[in-house]
Write a protein that binds this DNA or RNA. Structure first.
Lengths: 197, 197, 197, 197
DNA sequence: ACATAAACGAGACGGTACGTCTCGTCTTTTG
DNA sequence: CAAAAGACGAGACGTACCGTCTCGTTTATGT
């Protein structure tokens, strides 16, 4: 009966989800470096084999686990300053805490092992395309120079925020200053706020 | 008449140097994650004990090893744009290649293990103080606003360059654009050069 | 319908056998004190983990390895002198050579570590019960006093033979003299043989 | 003039004594196998070098340390039974406790390493010559057969007592039974005492 | 008195093996 | 026949001692 369905036991979505959840839990508790596949499997109530059947390595597993966590897409909008602000705020919220360190570790590991792998990099900027659209729209409207280097703009705010997180420096007011700098060329000044006069 | 000197056999500078050199060599060849203390010791022709006697962990060892490599201080000067350019150039040269990935990995590991450790962070910016001086001098001369947020300026160029390296994106022209942005508020435009006319 | 059997992969009998064989080989070559678990594992083509999984310590491993070698049970019989002679001959053959020294070392080590462990002791006399039966039968038949101290008789010949081996003194004729002493009370005299006319 | 005396600083008897005392203390506490030269040196308040300067190995050190402890010579006498009794009693007292296990370990180790070394063996029987004299005197007086195998007699009681100690079996009454057996050919019987009627 | 020189304490050195841990694979039994 | 359980070969971990080797210091001897 029902000859189309392959026979035997099917891939269990529960196991899959349990493994990802366990990965996130272990990441939060002990961090990327002390995470072990055995620990994750035990926590998920699952055999090690099952983990290795679906993910080739620890990094792939972690990548998917935190990737699932980061899928907070920023809302679309029309105002350049507001949109950039929203994008950065989302990013800060996503990366504040363990994920930032995990991503750094992942990045370092993958850079060594697979020179051209864009995996971890993609995570830092799941919505890079969307932000590029925002910037190009702004350039078309004249809010930015027509030949603006969107790539560099993206890297400036991404790199800066990531670096502040990595160094555990405060991030209050940073978004506003970055928006001012990138949109209007306002050199950042001390003080928590640099809003327009 | 020097009661401070300890009595026994003294620490061997050759071993010390051999270990750091071996660490750098292994880092270059296999990267931070596949570096093993045993491998370093064997390469240095040294007992594992000797490594562990002076460095408590793999990360401490690597930190010192690449730290010794990064001690390229930028030259002092008086022209803001030229000075910033020199600082960034030095940084790019120092970090291009394996060290960048190693630092990322180190950063990720240390963030997890010792929440407040500024060790790896300090490496990204061995001369942070010197650059702050440059910026403050410029502010006094009027080349920058008097209340310029030097901290953020530093993080912007450091984070951006580091991120470009991490993502393996090209860095040509980036320094010039960053200088223009941070000193004059010039929004970066496409094209290899955006120097003033 | 056999709920007792564990689920996972089963203990590999080949590894088990290879480890014991390697242990015996290493013992013969370098002796108990220079035997290392690493060496045994390498020789057996086995991971160190597998050795430690089944034997808690070097001494336990060696104990089982030579125990497997000593399982030469003497044949049962009816004549007291002949039976004792056979028992002692078996023992001498078993212990001549490396095993004696190994057992001594094991005994010394275990005495220190586990005060009441009868392990190595049992090895000197794998068939102590059988010999006790022989002596008790003889007592019942009147060939020995009815209240003969079988325990001490056993210890006398075991201790004496072991000690001769340990001191590397010759053992020719000793068995005959011991039999004569223990069965008939004949004080041992010089000369290779003291058998009855 | 006295060209024989060396010039420099002389061997320090305090260190020497402190090392032997520390060796005995460590032996009592942790046993032969867990004794380390470093531990002994630290306990003695002495550099490792000083230990190695005077003793080539752990076993040589231990040998001398317990040898110094065993120098309880049995008293001479004229009555065969009484003399044998005294000899065995002394031996039991000397070996009861840690020394027995240490000697076993030493014996095992030395047998493997230096096939013909009589060192540890000599310890079991510091006074073997004296006992041989006793037995030969008895043979001359007619208390033993004229061609008595003194060597075997010595080994019987030495081996038996040592083995009882090694197996931690009780030794009460054993000396009396051994004396009866070896002097009069009395087969040992159960019960703590088998004294003459 | 002073140089000479041996023995000293301290402890760093190159090593070896320890027993533990985790890796990623392989094998067996259960559902 | 996939999942679980878990044994397996491999090999790095960080520790403990080994026996050797400098170091300065101390103590005795012989000028």
């Amino acid at each position: 009966m029902d000859p189309g369905r392959p026979r035997g036991r099917q891939r269990s979505p529960e196991s899959h989800r349990a493994i990802l959840a366990a990965t996130r839990a272990v990441l939060d508790e002990v961090g990327y470096f002390r995470l072990t596949v055995e620990g994750v499997a035990a926590r998920a109530g699952v055999g090690k084999t099952t983990v290795y059947r679906w993910w080739p390595s620890k990094s792939a597993l972690v990548l998917e686990a935190i990737g699932a966590d980061l899928t907070k897409p920023p809302p679309p909008s029309g105002d350049l300053r507001a949109d950039l602000h929203a994008v950065m705020t989302t990013m800060l919220e996503d990366l504040r805490g363990p994920p930032a360190a995990t991503l750094l570790a992942l990045g370092g590991e993958m850079l060594h092992e697979t020179p051209a792998d864009a995996g971890p990099v993609a995570l830092f900027q799941a919505d890079r395309g969307a932000v590029e659209d925002i910037l190009e729209d702004a350039a078309r409207r004249g809010d930015l120079p027509p030949d603006v280097d969107t790539d560099l703009l993206l890297d400036i705010y991404t790199g800066t925020l990531l670096y502040r997180l990595l160094c555990r420096r405060p991030t209050e007011g940073v978004i506003e200053k970055l928006v001012g700098l990138l949109v209007e060329g306002e050199i950042p000044r001390s003080g928590p706020e640099t809003g327009p006069a």
